[in-house]
């Protein structure tokens, strides 16, 4: 067990005008851990996620990241070049809508190869080999390597987005509703994929979802957000089985039973 968290967030605030999207949020993310963030839409989950990898600048507070090499550093202390480099190497961001995370104008292979090329891969054959390997990992027929993403189904696009993000073996993966909008059988396959990737690659993941079943199956820990605030956090089974806050109880009791 290492004693330094991959990510350390302290007193993070972000407001849009007079509306607070994130209020005084603090937490730590440990290596190999999956942290679920649940809460209704508009509770600030996605804003928080975007603040964490610099897509949105927070109003106050600090986000400190421990890179593979060396010492923890806050986002503020990093140059833009450093942040952008991390976001193509050690960080990954899986968007809710695959179209936001894919380059729709180029083939599946180029989508996967982009991160490799951005860090200096210059051997076409090797890039292609890795792209094929990743297509297989995410269960997309490798013969589709030269097809454009828009010829793929929604579930395939989402898997392609995951492959594109994980090809550089990131340490920190932020996922925004990765299984939202997919039918349940595709969702199950994706959950299985994410679970095994997390285990095999020792990823640290922050998973934003409003689906408590997804949160239960994937995350070790949960944070419940409401109106920009973290109202409860703890072990996933504790939050779901014995929620303390009124809103958490409402959330858990509102889940439909199959």
């Amino acid at each position: 067990m290492t004693d330094i968290p991959v990510l350390e967030v302290e007193g993070l605030n972000k407001a849009y005008g007079s509306i607070a999207a994130c209020r005084d949020i603090s937490f730590e993310l440990w290596p190999g851990e999956v942290l679920g963030i649940v809460g209704e839409s508009g509770s600030g989950k996605t804003t928080l996620l975007k603040c964490l990898n610099g897509l949105i600048e927070a109003d106050s507070g600090s986000v400190s990241y421990l890179p593979a090499s060396g010492e923890a550093k806050t986002l503020d202390a990093m140059s833009e070049a450093e942040q952008r480099y991390l976001s193509r190497t050690e960080w990954a961001y899986v968007h809710q809508h695959p179209r936001d995370g894919l380059r729709m104008g180029v083939s599946a292979g180029a989508n996967i190869g982009e991160r490799l090329m951005s860090v200096g891969a210059r051997h076409y054959g090797n890039i292609r080999e890795q792209a094929i390997e990743w297509l297989e990992k995410v269960e997309i027929d490798p013969s589709r390597i030269d097809d454009l993403p828009h010829t793929f189904s929604g579930g395939m696009q989402q898997r392609l987005q995951i492959a594109r993000n994980l090809v550089t073996a990131p340490r920190l993966v932020l996922m925004d509703e990765p299984t939202g909008g997919l039918d349940v059988s595709v969702q199950a396959r994706l959950l299985d994929l994410i679970r095994s990737l997390v285990r095999d690659l020792d990823l640290s993941v922050i998973l934003v979802t409003h689906d408590l079943a997804v949160a239960r199956l994937l995350s070790t820990r949960l944070m419940v957000m409401q109106r920009g605030e973290v109202i409860e956090q703890g072990l996933t089974d504790q939050i779901l089985d014995d929620p303390q806050a009124a809103y958490s109880q409402l959330l858990v009791s509102s889940v439909l039973q199959v």
Binding site: V106, I127, D146
Partner: peptide
Amino acid sequence: GLMHVKLYEDISR
């Protein structure tokens, strides 16, 4: 890196 993505697409097509 993006420049090479374009060249990659060329070769793959």
